[in-house]
């Protein structure tokens, strides 16, 4: 008990700051990744050969971009993007420095998740909307997105958790947050207790997010009686 008190007296503030940094990093990156990923995913679906506005060349190029983005391991992207990150936010360190590579690597991931969610929407509904004279844009925001909402929310929880994991990697190049703490104390100074504390915090946060995602998706889904 006393040992625990002593531990928190010494590292409590540090861990709280790290947790906060990780959450901010992850949250801001997720938001930006969706701002970029939703339009990309929608465009992929709409311009597909069986889509509302088929466009073979555009669809191919888009597919390549998304695939290239997804095939570069995050740790490599992190380092490769340092000059770009400096250019965009002025530094490659700390929370701002981590957000840029996180957004770049998560956006294609989000695009694929969104694409998958939209493809689950029953094609008959799209056709019904067309039969009432809906334009492509109206079908996207009045049918595709609302009908796919529960699936999109589940996807968002997965995305959040994935970015969460990546953000710990960002810690290895001075990105701040829990990953940074785990490396500096757990790896470089052999302080296992700090390492274990970060792991416990990460596990608890991931569980919370997953549960929040599942519950809200289920609550919002009108297909449940």
């Amino acid at each position: 008990m006393e040992a625990l008190q002593a531990f928190f007296a010494q590292y409590g503030a540090l861990l709280a700051q790290g947790t906060w940094d990780t959450i901010v990093m992850t949250f801001v990156s997720t938001v930006f990744a969706y701002v970029i990923g939703i339009p990309l995913g929608v465009l992929v679906v709409v311009t597909a050969p069986d889509g509302l506005k088929p466009h073979r060349a555009f669809n191919r190029v888009l597919g390549w971009i998304v695939n290239i983005g997804r095939s570069i391991p995050f740790i490599i992207l992190l380092v490769a993007l340092i000059p770009f990150t400096r250019f965009v936010v002025g530094t490659s360190l700390g929370v701002p420095g981590a957000i840029v590579p996180l957004v770049v690597s998560a956006s294609p991931f989000v695009a694929r998740m969104v694409e998958q969610s939209l493809r689950e929407v029953d094609g008959d509904l799209i056709e019904a909307a067309q039969s009432f004279g809906a334009s492509t844009w109206q079908i996207v925001y009045k049918v595709y997105l609302p009908e796919a909402l529960p699936s999109l929310i589940r996807g968002a929880a997965i995305t959040f958790i994935t970015i969460f994991g990546y953000s710990a990697m960002a810690g290895t190049v001075g990105g701040g947050g829990l990953g940074d703490i785990a490396i500096r104390y757990g790896y470089q100074r052999y302080q296992n207790n700090v390492m274990i504390a970060t792991i416990v915090i990460l596990v608890v946060l991931v569980q919370l997010i997953q549960t929040a995602g599942d519950v809200s998706a289920r609550k919002l889904d009108k297909r449940n009686r």
């Binding site: 029953d122 509904l125 056709e127 609302p146 009908e147 009108k222 297909r223």
Partner: peptide
């Protein structure tokens, strides 16, 4: 339509 095609989330 045969399968009604109602919007499930509306």
């Amino acid at each position: 339509f045969q399968n009604f095609s109602l919007f499930q989330q509306r």
